[in-house]
Each structure stands twice: as structure tokens, then as C-alpha cells.
Amino acid sequence: MSFKIGVDGGGTKTELILVDASGAIVARQLAAGCNPSQLGPEKAREILETALREITTKAEGGVTHTLLCMAGNRSFWKETADALSGSDFGAVSAVDDSRPVLELATDGAPGLVLHAGTGSFIAARAPDNSVHYAGGLGWKLGDPGSGFDLGRRAIAVALLELQAAMWSKNIALSPLANALCAHTGIADYTNNSRYFYNDAAANAQIAAFAPRVLELAAHDCGAAQQVVADSITDFARQADAVIQRLFPNQTTRVPCGVSGRILNSEPAAFVLRSLANKLKWPVVLQFIETAPIEGVRRLLAKV
């Protein structure tokens, strides 16, 4: 028998599947995240190669092809795929991590997918079958709608409240500001600010605050709801630019997948639906809860 390997590599985790000639999954494996933008190229490659070698031991008959669907610098992953080709992993190719969720959203037809998890991006397949990508600049330069963006905006709002409380003891803190203090274990503005600027673990803590922000927004915390609305609105502006460019004067609606734990949350989904109606997007929103690795499996079937 011959086998293929599919990889969904992101910042949080790296998921691998081994499929047989019929496309059935015969083995799965999880490894740490391998985004080179977060870990550096050497560590990212080491995590990937180690995981590949481990799952290859379960391929009794050899691997003919490996498909890498990876977050981070596409040139780096293209070079990595070229270096690995011809080894125990068969012919190796690399695509953006947007391709599996685009496959889940449109099944190869024209349309697009909006994704927001730890990071965010927009991927689209135009009527001429060309594939386009927007956003995904990373936490330093943007990614509105992402976990990091939600966390960053919410922390800024909470810090301003804590700052004001330094000068007036009569200020009642919002649930968002209290949640930040609970999240960091720090009760005042000065030390919270120092933590986020000086602690090496602070970046991870910023993104980790996003689920709490969404929870507060779902329970009518006005400050959290405004943070979600602002972040998703900026993301929708990016999506609107893609839609206007690729689907101008569209008379029939195209599928628009909505992927990732942020956009599939109730507060974010409410904002996105409202904006889609207001902007008159020629799309049908389809909220996707299927894991991206299933999109990887579908892409492997086409290799």
C-alpha cells in the first residue's frame, strides 16, 4: 500500500494525518505549534521534521506525497518542502494554512473564507479559479478579528480604566478591567503595564485573554462588546475589499465560510452578520466548525 501525509501547521499546534490510497485516515498525530514567525525557522523545522518522522513509521508501504498546509512565511515553507522532497516523505509540497479552510468553505468552487483564531486571514477562489489571500500580517502588524487583536484591544481598554482608578477611588471598574486583573493576577495599572511590556510570556497572555473577552461580551459587558465590534469591523473592512475586487457586480451569491473559534463565537458572529447585511455582501455565510485537518484530507485526495 502507498500512503500520503497531510499537515496542518499553526502557531498553537501541528496536526498530522496519514491516509491510505482510498483517502481514509489510518493515523493521526499532534505536535507543538511550528509557526516560524513565533519560534524561529530552525525550531519550526525541527518540530515539523520530528513529527513527520514519527508518523512515517506507521506507513507500511511508503509515503508517496506529503502536503504541508502551514502558517507563517510561505517562502520558508516552500524551501522546507523542496529540501524534504525525495526523502522518506515522498514528493513534498507546501501551501498556506488558508487552503484547507477554503476547501471546506467552497469545495473547490468560487467563494471565500474568513478565518479568525489566534491569527486571522481571508482566502478566496475567484470565478477564474485563481486563489487569493489577504490579511495574515501577524500579531505585530495587524490581524484584526484574531485572538491576539481582541486581547490587545481589551487589555488597552482595561488598562485605561485601571489608570483612571489611580487618581479617583470612586471609579467602579468594569467587568472587563476586573477580568484583566484576574487574568494576570495583578491588581493595579502600573504593574500590569510593566508586565505586558517586560515579561517574555506576555504575548501569549494577550491572546489567551480573548476567550474571556468573548465570554464577557456574551454576558452583556458593554466594554467587551465594543472591543469585539471594533475588531470584527476592521476585519470586515479587509473582507469587503476582497469581495469588491473579486466579485464585482455579482448577481448570484457565493459561499463564504466563517472559520475559527473567534468568528464562530456568538458575539463575533452577531457583528459579522450585521456587517455583511449592511455592506450587502453577495455571499451566503456558512459557519464552519469542522477542523481544518479535514480540509487537508480533502486536498490530499486531489494530489
Rank of each mutant, 00 (worst) to 15 (best):
S2L: 09
S2N: 13
F3N: 01
I5W: 01
I5T: 00
G6F: 01
G9R: 01
G10E: 01
T12W: 01
T14N: 01
E15L: 03
E15D: 14
V19D: 01
D20S: 00
R28L: 05
A32D: 15
L39R: 12
E46K: 13
L48E: 06
E49D: 06
L52D: 12
R53C: 15
E54W: 08
E54D: 14
T57E: 12
K58P: 03
G62V: 06
H65S: 08
M70R: 07
S75F: 03
S75D: 10
W77A: 10
E79W: 00
D82E: 15
A83S: 12
A83M: 07
L84F: 05
G86R: 08
F89L: 11
A94T: 08
D96E: 05
D97R: 06
D97S: 06
P100L: 02
L102F: 02
L102N: 07
E103A: 06
L104Q: 14
A105V: 12
G108Q: 05
A109Q: 15
A109R: 10
P110V: 00
V113S: 09
A116K: 11
T118H: 14
A124W: 15
A126E: 05
P127C: 00
S130T: 13
S130Y: 06
V131Y: 02
Y133Q: 11
Y133E: 11
Y133G: 01
G135K: 12
G136H: 13
W139D: 14
W139A: 13
G142W: 06
P144L: 15
D149T: 00
R152A: 14
A156P: 02
A156D: 10
V157A: 11
A158L: 08
L159V: 09
L159K: 04
E161Y: 04
L162G: 02
A164R: 15
A164P: 09
A164Y: 04
M166E: 15
S168A: 13
S168C: 09
K169I: 01
I171K: 08
P175C: 07
A177G: 06
N178Y: 05
I186K: 12
D188W: 00
Y189W: 08
T190E: 03
N191A: 07
R194P: 01
F196Q: 09
D199R: 14
A202T: 09
A204K: 11
Q205D: 13
A208I: 05
F209P: 05
F209A: 07
F209D: 10
F209Y: 04
R212V: 07
L214A: 04
L214G: 02
E215Q: 15
H219S: 12
C221R: 00
C221E: 13
A223F: 04
A224P: 02
A224I: 04
Q226A: 11
Q226G: 05
V228A: 04
S231W: 03
D234K: 03
A236M: 12
Q244R: 13
Q244C: 11
T251V: 13
T251R: 09
V254Y: 02
L263D: 09
N264P: 02
S265I: 01
F270K: 15
V271Q: 02
L272W: 09
S274A: 14
K278D: 06
K278S: 12
W281N: 10
F287P: 09
A291E: 15
A291G: 06
G295I: 10
V303P: 00
V303E: 10
